[in-house]
Design a protein around this nucleic acid. Sequence first.
DNA 1: ATGAAAGCGCTAACAC
DNA 2: GTGTTAGCGCTTTCAT
Lengths: 317, 317
Amino acid sequence: MSTATASRALSGSPLISADTADRVKAAAEGLRYRSDHIGRALRSRATLSLGLVVPNITNPFFPALVQAVEIEAKRAGWSMLLADSLDSVDIERENLDLLIGRRVDAIVASPLHRTRSRPALAAAAEILPVVQFDRHASDALPYVGVDQRAAMTAVLEHVVAAGRRRVAYVGANTGESTAAERLSAFRRWAVERGQERGHWLADSTLEGGDDAARRVLARRPDVDAIVCCNDAIAVGVLAHLGERGIDVPGQVAVTGFDDSVMSLVCRPALTTVAQPLDAVAREAVAWAQNGPEAPTGRTLFEARLVIRRSTAAPNPA
Amino acid sequence: MSTATASRALSGSPLISADTADRVKAAAEGLRYRSDHIGRALRSRATLSLGLVVPNITNPFFPALVQAVEIEAKRAGWSMLLADSLDSVDIERENLDLLIGRRVDAIVASPLHRTRSRPALAAAAEILPVVQFDRHASDALPYVGVDQRAAMTAVLEHVVAAGRRRVAYVGANTGESTAAERLSAFRRWAVERGQERGHWLADSTLEGGDDAARRVLARRPDVDAIVCCNDAIAVGVLAHLGERGIDVPGQVAVTGFDDSVMSLVCRPALTTVAQPLDAVAREAVAWAQNGPEAPTGRTLFEARLVIRRSTAAPNPA
DNA sequence: ATGAAAGCGCTAACAC
DNA sequence: GTGTTAGCGCTTTCAT
């Protein structure tokens, strides 16, 4: 029997008799034959693998997303090569190059920086399908994520509905598209609501939040809500308020964003925003697999407000 | 010029004139030539890639380890295929199979279960080098991790040195080798110290810790220290004690393990154990790259006790 | 120092 | 429905 027949039998080609197919499969079983992925990839020009580029896997937002992408990729018979950019645009560029060199069939990337990541992403997209997820850097490439502006606006509306009137916003590095959009949502909302538009920027760390809280209080000692760009900052804010003896939520409400484990573990637990990671991952992988025909476009999902103790109604005092 | 000459020039073969080598490199540059990884892999029988199998990437202990492994792999010119077992031994077996099918050159795995993961791991090790890290399931395969028993003993000694006398231990699922070793360290220590040996088991979640704390208090209301197998459980214990109005560290000291972000964020911050992830990753990747000649053996690193507020000396009251 | 040719394992194209 | 053949891109003999 020829190798071609065997190949057809194992790949479930219709051009083969059921009998032969069965015999081949039985023999393959007996010999513990496993088709060689490399040979197949060389011949078929497809590696059935996906490159996933994340800004930094130790950012607690990403592990769940990585897991979701891997599950979706596997569902389609693809494997995932993970590349962590360690928050460096240079490493991100190297990662894209490396994945292209590895002949992945498509790349799903969360670009580090909304402008500085663009050239490398665009260069990669000349060679293979590139889908942006969570963050974006180029309007010319497909993007899958959640509607950051709507989510942040929902947080702000919630805080006001809970009786707060003097809201301060602490944003993160606006190089990240998500952070930029959340800040822009705050500013628009503040204008529409006739609220004070002042905002503060912080590193996305506990120390960054701690320091930002100090600056907020110095400038607006009467603040009754601090809305933060993400959970890490919010937890730092919480720590600072705790040290100063300021009660949360009694005197000041605090909110985070991302629904990371931190928001659940800190005291009081943080009101935050949860993203539909499975849906985002599924859509991103689907885009990637549609190959070069994938039209440019955005798919936005709706995030969900997770209300916890940190925004409970203030003490009557 | 023949393809052979070009290949030699680019791979830096000595059998070539400097002049030709330069011309080839210049031409390659101009044409943006990048050698095809698949063709090379087919010919050379090496994919320069490493499979990494983790129990569950959303377990906050693993992201930093994944990052460390990827950095080390990249340093050696290898890429990393990540496979997440979602805490299922069946998926873990599939993952090993899948990585073998992808022709990775070696696998680094943290086995889910100290006995049930063994068959699949052993089968994989027949085909390619397999290194266990953090957790282990087979004495016949190399292992790199930290000395769990020494670390847990250090925690216990620290708690006693801080003036605690009635220590309860809350362990995790002992299917994990690390959890089994930490529990065994506690039991040995309790015997040697003439301490009460009672211990409780819990799921490695906040709810698990909460429930375990309830059971501990029901049985030993006079407990003055609760030593936990990991941070997740410890944070749950902390939450339960908080609800009951029991002061930490005033009345009860609590400890975690893993130095995850949770241990830093919760209040009071948790005394915990930090592992030298970079060293573990470097060693694991080195074992993997030494290929089939790697002798069986264990490399144990020393963990570091991180002392925080949750084990401060008790109130004089 | 260079070229010619073979072949890694697979599948697509073509013949029958 | 099955066999034959070619060739994916590379490296490595072997010959010159």
